[in-house]
Amino acid sequence: MNKKIFLLSILPISLIILSCNGYIYPQFEKNPKAAPELIKFDLTMSHNTSKIWAPIRIFEISKQNMPESDEGLKIKSCIAQWAGTFLEETIENDLIHLEFEYKNTYKTNDPDLNVAMLEYIQALTNFTDFVAKKYKNSEFTTTTPTHQWESEILIVDENDSKDSVAGKLYFAMDKYGGRRNHNLGPIASRLLNSSNEMTQPILIHNMKNLAINISGQKSLKDSDSIDYYFYQSNKEYLFNTDLCKK
C-alpha cells in the first residue's frame, strides 16, 4: 500500500481500487469462491468510501467564494447540517450491517485477515460517525467562521496518531491491505490507494443527488458549479428546509 493516503475533498478522492486478474493461488484451489468474496468486500468498501467523501467534498466546494458574512456563514452552517445527516444515513443504511455480514469471512482460512476486515469496517464507521458529529454539532458565525477539524478530516495518512480517529482508519486500511495481498499474492488482485476514473461516477452521482436535495433544483449537469454562489442563488429553498430551520 502507498505510505500516504490523501483524502482531499477538493481533489480526486483516494479510493480502494482493484487491479484484478483470474489467477487463483494454490491456497484457494479447494475454495475458489473465497477470492471473489474478498473482491466483493473490496468493491463494497470502495463504494462506501466514495459515498462518505461525497458530502465532505460538497461542503468543501461550497466554501469556494463564500464570504464570512452572516448570510454566508448561515449557508455554511446549513450545508454542514445536510452533510452530517447524509453521513448518519450512510452509517445506518450502508455501514452498520457490514460487521455482521463479514464476521465469518476468511475466519477459518486466515483468522488474521478476518480480524483485519472487521477492524477496517469499524474504523471506517467510527471515522464517518466522527465527521458526521462535527458537521451536525458545529455552528459557523462571524466570531467562529472556521473550525480546526475542517482541515483535519481532509487528510488520513501515516502521520496521524494511532489513537486518533483518522489514524485508526489509516492503520486499519494498511493492516487489511497487507493481509489481503499476503493471501492473494503479488500477481493476483492487488489493493492500491489511488484515484481512479472508474470510481468517479459513484462520487459524482452522490454529490449531484445531495446538491439537488440541498438546493431544491430538479437536476444538475456534471459541469454545473456548486460553489457558494450556487447555494446563495437557492437560499430561499435552503433556509426553509427542515435541517436549516432548526
Rank of each mutant, 00 (worst) to 15 (best):
N213K: 04
D94E: 04
L15A: 11
N126F: 00
G177V: 14
L169S: 02
F171Y: 12
N126I: 00
N181M: 07
T146I: 14
L124A: 12
I52A: 01
N126S: 04
K245M: 08
Y106A: 14
E71V: 09
N93C: 13
K63I: 10
N104C: 09
T108Q: 07
T128K: 02
Q148K: 15
D160F: 04
D174S: 02
F100Y: 14
A34G: 11
I212S: 04
A83G: 01
S195H: 10
Q148D: 11
L8Q: 10
N193A: 15
A54M: 03
K74V: 11
N206V: 09
I153R: 00
S138F: 04
A166V: 02
S69L: 13
T49I: 11
N206S: 11
L8T: 14
E139M: 15
N31I: 10
T146E: 14
K107D: 08
I58A: 01
L7K: 11
I13Q: 09
L7W: 05
L113I: 15
L243G: 02
D157R: 01
K33L: 06
K4I: 11
V156A: 00
G216Q: 01
A132M: 08
I187F: 06
V165L: 03
S195C: 13
T90M: 12
L95D: 02
G167H: 00
Y106G: 03
N48Y: 11
K103T: 08
T241V: 06
Y231L: 14
K51W: 13
G216T: 01
G177N: 10
D163W: 12
L184Y: 14
Y170K: 01
S161C: 07
D112R: 14
G72R: 00
V115T: 04
M173L: 05
I56F: 04
D42F: 12
F100Q: 10
W149I: 00
Y120G: 01
K246D: 09
L210G: 07
P36Y: 12
